[in-house]
Amino acid sequence: MKLTIPAFVGRIAFSALAALLGAVFALPLLWFLFAPFNARAELGLAVPEPWTLQNFVTVFGNSYAVQALWNSFIQAIGGVILIGAAATLAAYALSRSSIPGKGAVTYILLLFSSVVSGSAAMVPIFLIISAAGLMDTHIAVILTFAGGLLPTAMFILRDFIDSIPKSYEESAMVAGASPVQAFFDVALPVIRPGIVVIVVWSFVNIWGSFLIPFILLRSDRNMPASVAIYSFYSEAGTPIVTLLAAYSLIYSLPVIALYLFVSWKFGFRFFGGIKA
């Protein structure tokens, strides 16, 4: 079919607009890729001349910044293990048992969870953690995140487990398996894609969080990377762009790596109760 001239012009205009919009979103990403390798990086976008790893050398020479990355790992992985294990067991019980009112339990928890990890509850959380003598520990951060993220994790996972026929475990038990055997041999492998979603989701949440660790942690040696980024500011409060850029790139790599790994290994077939 031959295009009429107005339609042709319309297409060109649409493509140009889309390209412009794309460029607006691409520019910060390009800066994010170029600046870490530029010894004279500023807030403006510039191609490094020459490409250098000097910024990374400086960052890795800063023991506080390296320790902070390690702290992020401890807090995120600790939180993920706690949330993953607790959400799996709780969601499985909520899905399979016949406790009356189990639906209400999930919804009430879900309702309050947004409060727990939200800023509104910061004062009570601070007081509770302080009273428990857990101030300035990784455990404090891990427990607070578990409290905040667990209900949503349970909700997503329960939905997932509900969609799996009970006959899997039933056939295992009839064949001679105990409930625990049936859970580990049959149910757990089948619900693993759902658990993976929970793991990625809670890892990203904890990894990127600033407020909770900032409030619950005191000493430099416990701060995660999200807080440590602030150490790349001069005493006058202006950012040291070169180091900030390099550190940000390092900081974002684990999340990207996790996404790539999961989508390669499991694929995101299931997300938030919607199966694609």
Binding site: E170, M173, A177, S178
Partner: peptide
């Protein structure tokens, strides 16, 4: 008695084959 202690075998309508 728990199903595992009854020494029975069962074929389910949906077969319940373990997908993994």
């Amino acid at each position: 008695l728990h199903p595992k202690d009854r020494n029975i075998a069962m074929v389910f309508q949906d077969y319940a084959l373990y997908p993994h």
